[in-house]
Simulated assay, not measured.
Amino acid sequence: MRPADLAREHGISTQAIRNYERDGCLPPAERTPTGYRIYTELHASALRAYLTLVPAYGYATAGSVMTAVHAERLDEALTELDRGHAQLLRDRETLAAVREAVGHLTGGAIAGIGLPAPPGPRSVGEVAHRLGVTPATLRAWEAAGILTPARDRATGHRRYLPADVRDAELAHLLRRGGYLLNHIATVLRQVRTAGGSGEPAAALDAWQQRLTTRSLTMLTASARLDDYLTLRAGTPDRLDLKAT
């Protein structure tokens, strides 16, 4: 096969094929005496695996998996996939926590989000530490209309009351769900309004659909990678291919 043959199937450029080989996402291609690359069904299978891993796990993980496979570090490649599945499980648990939280928030409770809310006002640094973000992140959320902490009259410092911590927790979870700041601000305004649970419910339903889609994409990626590993294991002299 020529680079164009591989590229045509996926609607990508021949330069992309060469880049993938250079980066270790494809096995090294043999060359003709005149220097042209020779690709085989093995390379086509590797490309299918890589291009399905990308939407499932992201570019970085997809590249790490393929380069580990080509370096004969299969356990390392599988560990990368395991991390992706573990993150997906955490995201599902996060979504469940947000759903429970949204069901309670209009009543003023904080059930379902992280640890029990701290009593009394908290500083921006304390809330940032609680969430594992920077104070600058919280200030950015405030500028976007997501958070509305009061200020200490004497010092001018921000004072996060339990309701503000609740909002910060929910904002953090929605950010992990991929929502933009302006959308999160809308959701928080709805949550603060009695009876305004429709918008958060719709947002969480969309989040659920994205997680379902990602799960199915992971299944497809695993199948393509398994196809490649099976073909690779049965390819004679596959370790003797050398990049030139």
Rank of each mutant, 00 (worst) to 15 (best):
D152N: 14
D240G: 05
A111D: 08
G112C: 08
A111L: 08
G196K: 11
E199I: 08
S197T: 14
A168W: 04
R159N: 15
V124W: 05
A206K: 06
A221C: 07
R159F: 04
R153E: 15
A49G: 09
L216P: 11
G35P: 05
L173A: 15
L81T: 03
L180N: 06
T148K: 12
G196D: 12
R176V: 01
V124D: 10
A154L: 10
S215C: 06
T148W: 02
L131M: 02
R224P: 00
W141N: 08
T217A: 14
V191W: 04
T235I: 04
R224N: 05
D5K: 11
A4C: 03
G84H: 06
L147H: 07
P149S: 08
A206E: 06
A233F: 00
H43R: 09
L211Y: 06
R238Y: 03
T106Q: 14
A56P: 12
L174N: 04
H129Q: 09
A96M: 08
A4I: 09
V98K: 12
H172L: 12
P33E: 14
L105C: 01
G156Q: 15
L53T: 10
D167P: 02
L53M: 15
L42F: 11
N182T: 12
A171D: 09
G178W: 02
A185E: 12
I184Q: 09
T32W: 11
R22C: 02
D5E: 15
M218S: 10
A71E: 15
L147M: 07
R83P: 00
A144E: 07
R31M: 13
R37L: 09
E100K: 10
T213K: 04
D237L: 12
L78N: 12
K242A: 13
T230F: 00
A163C: 00
V69E: 11
R139Y: 06
L53Q: 14
V165Q: 09
T52M: 13
H172M: 14
V191E: 15
C25N: 04
P28C: 04
T61P: 10
L211K: 03
L89A: 13
L161P: 01
R139D: 02
E100N: 04
R22T: 07
A49T: 13
L170K: 11
A185K: 10
H85S: 01
P135D: 13
V127S: 04
A101W: 08
T217C: 05
V191M: 15
L211F: 04
D5P: 04
